[in-house]
Design a protein around this nucleic acid. Structure first.
Lengths: 203, 203
DNA sequence: AAAAATATTGGACCGAAGGACAGTGTTTGA
DNA sequence: TCAAACACTGTCCTTCGGTCCAATATTTTT
């Protein structure tokens, strides 16, 4: 994993280097030929092409954190919609940079707390929430039947479930059979499909 | 820092416990008196008050991850809007739960990759999952093995697949056995889990 | 108190699933 | 051309999964 700092201007960010000693500074024009899947990119918004560059790098499988000197809600949304996983002030303290790296490196999204509600609120109103409250199939099961069904839905065999719940394999079969009947499925395969893909049945 | 698992039903989630051995299960009614700032809350959407509870807990300074058996874009938005920092499938593998805990514990937002783009309206590329992507997994199979594996992953029995592909049930077993070996799974249950939860599987 | 639901287990049965071993014909690549 | 991969099928065997016939004890509901 390589860490790259992309900026049009030659403005070095000391705090970035103190958080990531191995970071390399690269020009926007050449970065697309230097990056590979999984690279961590710190991208300054000091040139006009940064949204397109973000999208292109995201398509390559890079993790992009957009850095700005003037944070704004609009720019944050633009960054995230372009495929960036993080957005923060360029002069953030090193601990914050490390935190953002940790979060974005683990498939998370990092946005400053004061912008988070605005960004999510905007996303919410933009997409509009259509209320589709899916019925919970497991509600009609008893506690024990549900425990067995959930364990089975994770791929466990009857014997494994028996050990897990400290009951006989025969009892597992009993609960499981009851669950099958109540849920209207014929076997464990249908069960796991019903549980993991219910949204497709609703919508 | 305390980890609490909140569910109306007594459904234990074994994977949650395997990722966080010290997690305590608490009833929704009593959780507000037990939590303190910084606690990590895993909240199931199996009762009607979960959005209000999320807001209340977020106001207390807790980190909330909403878990559901039926992920949907609308519910994800509702969770984040209510103040949750994470949203994921209740049957996610332990590594994913750990990752979500890490991200949300560091002020990050965690949403499954396939929902992230919808939630933020962004062009996220599915990063991670190197050898786990469905296409990658199925790529190592022959055309026939892939056809059988996909049919089985839809819940069909060997006999049904045989009729579907107009071959003998014995041949289905042959192709399926080869697929098991190549994919490193032990039976059809593991296969459907591997294929249906690919997008969440990061490794 | 009576009735219903739940949790637990037993035995037996049968089909499905998966592997071991063996064989045929076709296609493809070195 | 020859080896390797592929597609296909057979028999035999073991284990697993699911359902049928029960039974008993506890809890909850009516």
């Amino acid at each position: 994993m390589t860490a790259l700092f992309i900026s049009q201007k030659r403005a070095e960010i000391p705090r970035l280097r103190s958080a990531f000693p191995d970071v390399r500074q690269v020009d926007p024009e050449r970065v697309l030929r230097l990056t590979k899947r999984g690279d961590q990119i710190w991208l300054m918004t000091d040139h006009a092409e940064w949204p397109a560059l973000t999208t292109a790098l995201a398509a390559q499988g890079c993790t992009i954190v957009v850095m700005t000197l003037v944070p704004s809600e609009a720019e944050a949304l633009q960054a995230l919609q372009a495929g960036a996983r993080g957005y923060l002030h360029a002069l953030s303290p090193p601990e914050l940079l490390s935190q953002a790296a940790l979060v974005t490196g683990n498939q998370g999204v990092w946005v400053p707390a004061e912008l988070l509600s605005k960004v999510l609120g905007a996303a919410f109103t933009t997409l509009g929430g259509r209320e589709s409250l899916p019925v919970d199939s497991l509600a009609i099961l008893t506690e024990r039947e549900r425990a067995v069904a959930l364990a089975v839905a994770e791929g466990r065999s009857n014997k494994e479930v028996a050990r897990l719940l400290d009951i006989t394999e025969r009892t597992v079969k009993a609960h499981l059979g009851a669950a099958f009947r109540k849920l209207g499925v014929r076997d464990r395969m249908q069960l796991v499909l019903k549980l993991s893909r219910q949204d497709e049945n609703i919508v």
